[in-house]
């Protein structure tokens, strides 16, 4: 079970989706906390945004966002950035300061799978952004976007 959200530049969620199965669903008390867990993770995301060296112990594998200035490695994917009572939180930062954050109900982050998911969603997001009728920070209500993200999630997670 996963809770995925795209956060705009002023901390506003512009897209939210829950990927669950009949067997694996969030408990009601966690479900209502998910948006707030994501919001609290923004503190860590903002910290990593300005880091060149990995500073967080929990994030030793990925490092900060600014790292790419001196290396050829991709930098948008930040890996596991936070945790909250058995839940893991992973993050992805776009060059336009939009944050992709996902709560992993199983408590672990599979970096390969998650990274690939984020990059594919990023591609979808960029396509949405190119739509002349879409303004940055507006909620993404396009059903095609939603269905594509869900297809991605099914292929990658469930």
């Amino acid at each position: 079970m996963f809770y995925f959200t795209i956060i705009g530049t002023s901390d506003n969620p512009i897209y939210e989706a829950e990927f669950t199965t009949a067997k694996n669903t969030f408990q009601p008390e966690i479900k209502e906390l998910n948006p707030y867990i994501v919001h609290s993770t923004l503190d860590i995301m903002e910290y990593l945004q300005w880091q060149r060296q990995p500073q967080l112990d929990i994030n030793t594998s990925s490092g900060g966002f600014l790292r790419s200035r001196h290396s050829t490695q991709e930098n948008s994917y930040l890996g596991k950035v936070d945790s909250f009572y058995g839940l893991a939180v992973s993050g992805f930062l776009t060059y336009g300061n939009i944050k992709f954050i996902m709560v992993h109900g199983n408590g672990t982050v599979d970096d390969t799978v998650t990274r690939s998911f984020y990059y594919e969603v990023y591609e979808l997001y960029l396509k949405t952004l190119m739509n002349p009728f879409y303004k940055v920070n507006d909620p993404i209500s396009n059903s095609a976007f939603d269905s594509k993200v869900r297809v991605l999630s099914k292929r990658l997670f469930v």
Partner: peptide, 30 residues
């Protein structure tokens, strides 16, 4: 440019944990 980073808290951005503080206060309230 609304999409630019907010200037008034740029110096403290990422260097505080107030959102985390609020989350725990909310959970405690519950």
């Amino acid at each position: 440019n609304e999409n630019k980073l907010i200037q008034n808290n740029l110096r403290s951005e990422g260097l505080t944990r107030f959102r985390k503080y609020s989350l725990y206060q909310l959970v405690a309230a519950k």
